[in-house]
Simulated assay, not measured.
Amino acid sequence: MLKPIISRSSLAILRRSPISSIYKSGVRLTSSRSTPAIQEGLGDFALTDRVAIVTGGNRGLGLEAALALSAAGSRAVYCLDLPEKPGENWNAARQSVAKLGGARRLEYVTADVRDQKTLFKTVEEIATKEGRMDICVAAAGISGAARSCLEYTEEELEEVHDVNFKGVFFSAQAAARQMVRFQLPGSIILLASIAGSVALKHTPILPYNTSKAAVIQMARVMACELAQKNIRVNSLSPGFIETPMTKAVISVQPEFQSIWSEQSFMNRLGKPHELRGIMTWLASDASSFCTGSNIIVDGGYTAW
């Protein structure tokens, strides 16, 4: 008989002391009721004492990833993003993490993922300060303008690919170099999209699609090269999620709310917090035999 991944006693702990959530400033925050017992009950899903970097961590899926890693016990999660100072949602998230207790910290660092040399230096400094580097979530990305493929300019193409392809690669590179330096096993999660696997109906954003397809292949190639160094690399392909990026598009073109929703079995867009579970799994030892994979979480969009 197959044994369950989490024992009944562990499930009981999780039920008695749930890591529930509340909303503030549009961010679903982790409850302050998390306890060490929950960490222990998470078993291989626990990230106790681990150090992570999350690019694009000021908001959206990057911030959700940071919250997920913190809730699972990470000692320090560094959110790297372009703004000189973090936004209101990030500050609310930091307060939420502080209430979890223990030594957990959410840190913010201004960084441009397109600048390889500076990014390498920044991540090296983080790893030196913390004495380790365990997890990287490369979530920084932009959608670019929506227009016919016949009209895109060279500059528009380069703008999207510089962030979504080069930036993701430089982030993964920077983290992997530190994982090798400290000779620790690591997990790298590259944020791709279903747009990297299928064309999006009524959504003409060719540079975005091609950049995300490149990220999926990037994860496979890096996984092959880094497996012998005990570093796992996977890509995560969300469907349409209610992030600031998608909300900005819907505010200008409201019809996309129904267009995107109707393509899903669930007839709705996903919520950012619905990706926390898969992010935690990919970052943790629970997914220790998973590398070079592209995980799709899209409400059934690509299953038609």
Rank of each mutant, 00 (worst) to 15 (best):
G300W: 14
I142R: 08
Y152V: 07
L119T: 01
I189A: 02
C149E: 02
S288G: 02
I259S: 06
C290T: 15
T35D: 09
V252S: 04
E274W: 14
I126N: 05
K24D: 10
A127E: 04
N89R: 14
G87R: 04
K212G: 01
A37C: 11
I250C: 05
A214V: 12
A176D: 06
E242R: 12
F240S: 06
V252D: 08
A139V: 08
P36M: 09
A127L: 05
D162I: 03
P83K: 05
V27K: 02
G41T: 12
K3C: 09
A103I: 11
R33H: 06
K247M: 09
I259M: 08
V297C: 07
A127M: 11
A176Q: 06
T243A: 04
G239E: 05
E40D: 12
S237V: 01
E242M: 13
S143L: 10
N294Q: 07
I6F: 13
D112R: 10
L206D: 00
G277T: 09
I53P: 03
S171N: 02
F120G: 01
I250Y: 15
R114W: 13
A192S: 15
V27Y: 04
V221E: 09
E151T: 11
A52F: 07
G60T: 07
A283C: 14
N294E: 11
A76F: 11
L2C: 09
I194Q: 02
